[in-house]
Nucleic acid binder design. Structure first.
Ligand SMILES: [Mn+2]
Ligand SMILES: [Mn+2]
Ligand SMILES: [Zn+2]
Ligand SMILES: [Zn+2]
Lengths: 125, 125
DNA sequence: TTATTAAACGCAACAATGTTGCGTTATTTT
DNA sequence: AAAATAACGCAACATTGTTGCGTTTAATAA
């Protein structure tokens, strides 16, 4: 099997994401990390962290892709909560206690969910 | 006020989307329309159709953006249903009768929703 | 029907985002 | 310390989306 290694870039990027109140985009991470590592490395680190289920990827309707960490415990956690994307301040936040209920036809196999709401956040309302 | 005009490009693109079983991406529409119009025109037509609420935009977690029409009646309809993105055949479909229930803190103003599930569709399961 | 108006267009140029290949570096294991 | 290879930097490329501007054309008024 292929093992995963702990590098300084990976540690720094994960640190950034976990300590951020809002979800971060690749561009924001690049700006925050400065010349820590290459653009491509950031993409690869993000992919790795997503695959390791340490962070999750959020796609908003306006096309932006952001990344956030899971604050909850690692036991049987799922990323099926709602995300809110503010039109004004452009912030994307996890609403970890807002979990939608729905009934899917049983001939589908769900592997991942992406619930994103757009509008105005409490700060911008 | 600025009025909207009916052009051949707009009519053809809407025709494509409404008659498609699955949601279509910009690239797919471009391939299907051939040299009907410019790349940029497709973007502008799609934006117009979304603003007119005739079609809706779907952003999947893998980064692809697709467009679909509303089959339901035009009276008080909303686009708050679930979309399914198949990992294998890459198809994106509207599940118009799957509408999630959730309770959002009241200090948010919702203007749009984007619910996307990822996994295997009935054809690929 | 013809003239007017501005929405929509084509084209070119640009920006942002994401991907791939390859030789090099550095983490982990032996 | 040496070996194996995951991860890296760099360059080059691909895809996606945006903007400006002069031209075309659909809608409306004359
Ligand atoms: Mn989240
Ligand atoms: Mn839909
Ligand atoms: Zn806000
Ligand atoms: Zn499928």
């Amino acid at each position: 099997m292929k093992t995963t290694r702990n590098t300084i870039a990976k540690a720094a990027i994960l640190e950034l994401i976990t300590h951020s109140e809002v979800a971060l985009s690749h561009a924001e991470i690049q700006k925050l990390t400065g010349d820590l590592c290459d653009r491509v490395t950031i993409y690869r680190v993000l992919d790795r962290l997503v695959n390791e289920d340490v962070i999750h990827k959020i796609a908003t309707t306006d096309g932006t892709v952001k990344y956030a960490s899971c604050s909850h415990s690692h036991e049987n956690h799922s990323h099926n909560h709602v995300h809110f994307s503010c039109e004004k301040c452009k912030s994307v936040t996890c609403l970890e206690n807002v979990v939608p209920m729905f009934k899917l036809p049983d001939n589908y196999l769900i592997k991942g969910v992406n619930f994103t709401l757009t509008g105005l956040c409490p700060n911008c309302i």
